[in-house]
């Protein structure tokens, strides 16, 4: 166990942190009944994955992937691929959050609560009528 923790802290601290964040976001999205908290959980979950990806693109002692004074040696720069993926991912997260927030506004309009369980209960009542 101590070995495990030591490896984590020594070599994998970013990854471990992003996995913990992923777990927190996932639990928020799945378990919290408050819609706005759910959306925050979604954002936290996504940014955790992006943190993981960026950490995998980093290499000790290398430069930002922007050409600097004509050097084109691949060993001089960090990996540009994760950055590109994360840029795409961030756009997807924003779009999804905007849709979820507008859904929240409409639901609050109708049911006057943010509690998804209560909303579903109300909804079942209406439906059985």
């Amino acid at each position: 166990m101590i070995d495990f923790l030591q490896t984590l802290i020594e070599y994998h601290i970013e990854e471990a942190a992003s996995m913990i964040l992923f777990g927190i976001g996932f639990s928020l999205l799945l378990l919290n009944r408050n819609l706005i908290k759910k959306i925050m959980g979604l954002n936290i979950m996504d940014t955790a994955v992006y943190l993981f990806l960026t950490a995998k693109g980093y290499v000790y002692g290398r430069m930002v992937p922007i050409m600097n004074s004509g050097i084109t040696d691949p060993n001089a720069y960090t990996n540009p691929i994760p950055d590109g993926l994360v840029l795409t991912g961030i756009v997807v997260s924003v779009s999804v959050s905007a849709i979820l927030l507008s859904l929240t506004i409409r639901l609050y309009d109708r049911y006057h609560t943010l509690d998804l369980d209560k909303i579903i209960t109300e909804w079942r009542k209406e439906e059985d009528n």
Binding site: L51, A55, Y58, I66, T78, V86, L87
Partner: peptide, 12 residues
């Protein structure tokens, strides 16, 4: 992200 050498992501 700035520390991890990804300024593009940091700005975004």
């Amino acid at each position: 992200w700035v520390i991890l050498q990804s300024p593009d992501l940091a700005i975004t």
